[in-house]
């Protein structure tokens, strides 16, 4: 499973991993490197310092804007992204944008897409977006319906692994052992329960839709390439973007991208692509790290690392989760260096 979607640029001095590279042909540079990028979410929004979702959403939508010649309508589920971008009287959006409810973004987007078809404007593309709660929980019914109908919608989930907007409660995307307001770090099994939760990318694949991908704010080029690719496809598409939340995770605001990177490099967040239900590519781990490297900087996992009494068993179970991902998606292989 080579990394074909990622632009195959072996370009020193920084290779493919920085946002820009003055040595690259302009058309091979990332959207984010361009001074003319849309800034789909502009300055003045009220996201917390170091918000991964604000970053991920701008990355994704700017890429979609470039891919479509700025013909994108965005539909937003209720959640942080909606609240921090559109508190009356200010909106940070620079593209047509509609917020309806928490659980219906996928359906609303289906409606927009249907309207564009009916109006004879199929070139206007529709992106629905929501957080993990709005996607994997309350919006799941509408999302599954949109997938099943193969409506011409790209749904992007910005996964920060809990209900952050309401004060960090558990969602079905919350990882095991994580402390949230509803899975507190108390008792003999602190944090979220092992063996729960759902893997939405795999569920999306089970719908047999043309395109499913996972991506991360830690790999801009990969994320942009996936959005760009998604915009070349008609039908239902799903991209699941990993976006750390300094507030909810108890991490330093400057560590947002670092944590996203460690999630990939530990194997806890596999980055892959699937077409019509089959995994076709994965992003190999470049510098493998133990899960501790990822867990330790986050206060939501602090109970695993109590001074002198680390929770060895449960750390091992989390490592097993990572190892299973590595095996399943073939994440450790020679082309690991990007």
């Amino acid at each position: 499973m080579p990394n074909e979607t990622v632009q195959p640029i072996k370009f020193y001095q920084t290779g493919t991993l920085t946002v820009g590279n003055r040595l690259l042909d302009p058309e091979k540079r990332t959207v984010q490197a361009s001074g003319e990028r849309t800034n789909a979410i502009t300055s003045g929004h009220r996201a917390c310092q170091g918000c991964g979702e604000a970053l991920g959403a701008r990355y994704a939508l700017d890429a979609a804007m470039r891919a479509t010649g700025n013909r994108v309508v965005a539909v937003n589920a209720t959640g942080c992204l909606e609240v921090f971008t559109t508190p009356y009287p200010e909106t940070a959006w620079q593209l047509p944008w509609l917020h309806s409810l928490f659980g219906n973004a996928a359906a609303v987007a289906s409606g927009v897409a249907a309207a564009m078809r009916a109006k004879g404007r199929p070139e206007v593309r529709v992106i629905a977006q929501g957080g993990d709660g709005g996607t994997t929980d309350i919006g799941f019914g509408c999302l599954s319906g949109m997938f099943e109908r193969n409506d011409d919608v790209l749904y992007i989930c910005y996964d920060n692994e809990a209900y952050m907007n309401t004060g960090v409660q558990r969602s079905s995307a919350t990882p095991p052992a994580a402390r949230t307001a509803t899975t507190p770090a108390v008792g003999d099994k602190p944090g979220n329960v092992f063996g729960t939760g759902k893997n939405l990318p795999l569920i999306a694949m089970a719908h047999g839709i043309p395109y499913v991908a996972t991506a991360s704010v830690a790999d801009l080029r990969d994320l942009e390439a996936k959005v760009q690719k998604a915009m070349t496809i008609r039908g239902a598409r799903y991209i699941h973007v990993f976006v750390p939340c300094p507030l909810g995770w108890g991490s330093a605001s400057q560590d947002t991208i670092k944590l996203a990177r460690l999630a990939i490099e530990s194997g806890l967040f596999p980055v892959f692509e699937a077409e019509y239900g089959e995994v076709v590519r994965s992003r190999a781990i470049r510098r493998k790290v133990p899960v501790e490297d990822y867990l330790k900087p986050q206060r939501r996992f602090a109970h695993l690392f109590k001074a002198g009494k680390p929770d060895v068993d449960r750390i091992a179970r989390l490592q097993a989760v990572a190892d299973a991902n590595i095996k399943r998606f073939n994440l450790l292989r020679p082309d690991g260096d990007a």
């Binding site: 509609l98 219906n104 359906a107 927009v112």
Partner: peptide
């Protein structure tokens, strides 16, 4: 897939 979706789709298409 549901009435909730039906009216939600309607919201999207009407807004468009």
């Amino acid at each position: 897939e549901s009435e909730f979706a039906a009216l939600s789709v309607a919201i999207g298409s009407s807004a468009a």
